[in-house]
């Protein structure tokens, strides 16, 4: 099979980008989408044209690096998979495929199809953790976790941090991502002491980064490679409301011991 590609090319963050069209060489339907790009790149390279830059690493759907919008859909035509798990058998001979980067103000483009998702890291640095020092943990079985909660927490914790939710959302909202993090930790007994502080800090950072708000369109859930549920957003909304009403904790002035 052969396809033609309409690909976004952009030299760097500040350059203006444009679409360019390339014809693929002969492809095998069992190739992954990224392997197809490898083959196209090898050809471009042989012709003296700079290969298309695209993010990829594990190629098994777990690292969250790959980030292509294929024909308007983040991660391509299939449900519940990342770009790297999309195979050419999902396309037909002669198809014209439009490939674009994630588009969001908070995810500036670095080059071609690669964007900068550091905003996600900063949201997590604001509070996406349980403050436990190494060595201070009690025996693991001293904190029982109901299987239901552990399973639900795992559903949320599966998030691979790819940003497809942001890419798909017409508002470029990061709510699904943030809510998955907040819910994972908020569902575990270990996460209770910092539950409201955490949600407040993370949502505030999310706003600062310039992501949009949730209008519950459902796009994020539809493109999420881990099919993380919108319900987690509701869960986060609930926690954030409690945090808002509680207000900031009382400031404590400390004195030295002894």
């Amino acid at each position: 099979m052969k396809v033609s590609l309409k690909v976004w090319r952009q030299k760097n963050a500040n350059a203006a980008g444009e679409f360019k069209t390339y014809a693929s060489p002969e492809l095998n339907p069992n190739m992954s989408f990224l392997e197809m790009l490898d083959v196209v790149n090898e050809e471009l390279s042989n012709q003296g044209e700079e290969p298309i830059a695209f993010g990829h690493d594990c190629r098994e759907g777990i690292c969250g690096t790959c980030s292509l919008v294929i024909d308007g859909k983040p991660h391509g035509p299939h449900k519940g998979v990342a770009t790297c798990q999309t195979y050419m058998r999902s396309f037909s001979n002669g198809d014209r495929i439009v490939i674009e980067p994630w588009r969001a103000k908070a995810f500036p483009i670095i080059k071609d199809l690669v964007c900068d998702r550091k905003a996600f890291d900063r949201i997590q640095q604001a509070g996406g953790f349980i403050s436990v020092r190494t060595g201070s943990a009690p025996d693991a079985n001293s904190i029982p976790v109901s299987k239901e909660n552990a399973d639900l927490a795992m559903d949320a914790a599966q998030c691979i941090g790819c940003g497809a939710c942001v890419a798909a959302c017409k508002n470029a909202s990061a709510m699904l991502f943030v809510s998955a993090k907040v819910s994972h930790l908020g569902l575990m007994p270990q996460g209770q002491p910092e539950r409201y502080k955490r949600v407040k800090a993370m949502v505030d950072q999310m706003d600062t980064e310039g992501f949009g708000a949730c209008t519950v369109t459902g796009s994020c859930e539809a493109v999420c490679p881990k099919e993380i549920s919108l319900d987690f957003i509701a869960r986060m909304n609930r926690d954030y409301a409690v945090a808002l009403i509680q207000g900031d904790p009382k400031q404590v002035v400390g004195g030295g011991a002894g």
Binding site: F19, G72, P74, V98, I99, K105, K170, G212, A222
Partner: peptide, 22 residues
């Protein structure tokens, strides 16, 4: 704020998976 968050639209189609009313 939402418009500012997504300044560029996709050319390959858009709003996949969203409910039309939304």
């Amino acid at each position: 704020a939402n418009k500012a968050a997504r300044p560029v639209a996709y050319s390959g189609g858009s709003a996949y998976g969203s409910s039309w009313r939304s």
